[in-house]
Design a protein around this nucleic acid. Structure first.
Lengths: 188, 188
DNA sequence: GATAACTTTCAGAACATTTTGAAAGATCGA
DNA sequence: TCGATCTTTCAAAATGTTCTGAAAGTTATC
């Protein structure tokens, strides 16, 4: 009744969309992303065409509030954008269709929200045990324990730093992942 | 009183460990991993030495049941292993110390549990709209809608297939990520 | 500037996950 | 085999997250 101008033309399209939406929602919840947020995204992604709040409410059986908050979050993540459709007062929403672009957008956000703060916190943590013990070596064991602790932290830091650099590359380069894949297939 | 044979030697070690544990737990919950599971892992990781259930309970203020279930899950993920210490009836646990190995282990598990089933489900989903409409083209719009739907699904499939192949490489190759990072830093 | 159409907000309800603790189940040594 | 020690299980409780719906807010039109 809503977005069916297209989807009702073939009776296989709706079930196929529903399947995809369910799939995407399932996967998202593995990754700590709210199911309904993923479902809204999935529907916009697979539908291709812009949809309005009422379309989404009807198709996914969610409340107006939920639709509104979910759409807001998706826009903050940069994966969904508003569209105005002339002659209609409703807001329409559409998902980024290019999967590579989508991937880079998500990576950029996660780096900003998670990797960057983590790196900073790790460095702070490392500084807690930076200098040798204040009053000389009280016990020989203390020095060694701190040293080992630091060695462990340092290798963690090195690893996360590398992930960080890698993310940066993937975000910047248009076909970074493709390049990585190709190269890895040779370099393994 | 428990694992303090080492950690009490320097008064900075305990706070530093606590900081790291908190950090790791924080990060994990961003990724849909139970906080206390990550905290147990973090403590074993940063402590280096094997610890028993009572050590963990005391250090993290968790119940015996929680410790037991968490340790079980960590072992299933392959990131923590049991150790027997002679002369002690308690079970001890230790975390894999090599961060690269740790990374590959986690990647292997996530691929098995998430990417592989996702790919299969996506392919099934794709088959729902595989053949052209049964009773010839009922409307010209129906055919086009299906075609566009299929195009979208296919690009999704292509992308996930690539992620899958990349994971495989990273899991197999000892220094895959390092190679990728190095090469990308030139190839960008 | 009043009305109608649409969107956002947010407190509480519904739902889901995680933790607890006590009981049952192992395992070991004698 | 027994008793002591340690581990696992699981139903219920605690906690945390997401969703709802009605009210408040906003915007466009006349």
């Amino acid at each position: 009744m809503f977005s069916d101008s297209v989807s009702s033309h073939d009776e296989r399209l709706k079930p196929a969309r529903e399947r995809f939406v369910a799939l995407w929602g399932q996967m998202a919840s593995n990754w700590g992303i709210p199911r309904s947020m993923a479902e809204v995204h999935a529907l916009l992604l697979i539908a291709g065409e812009p949809m309005n709040t009422d379309d989404l409410m009807a198709a996914l059986h969610i409340s107006r509030g939920s639709a509104s908050m979910t759409l807001k979050a998706l826009q903050e993540w940069g994966v969904v954008s508003r569209v105005h459709i002339r002659g209609d007062r409703k807001e329409y929403f559409q998902a980024e269709q290019d999967v590579w672009k989508l991937f880079r957008t998500i990576l950029r956000e996660r780096k900003k929200r998670e990797i960057d703060p983590l790196l900073e916190a790790l460095r702070e943590c490392r500084e807690l045990t930076g200098k040798p013990p204040a009053g000389a070596a009280r016990k020989i064991g203390a020095v060694r324990a701190i040293e080992e602790h630091n060695r462990r932290l340092d290798s963690m830091l090195e690893f996360i730093t590398m992930i960080d650099a890698l993310s940066e590359r993937l975000i910047a380069s248009g076909k970074g992942l493709e390049i990585a894949a190709k190269i890895l297939s040779k370099a393994s």
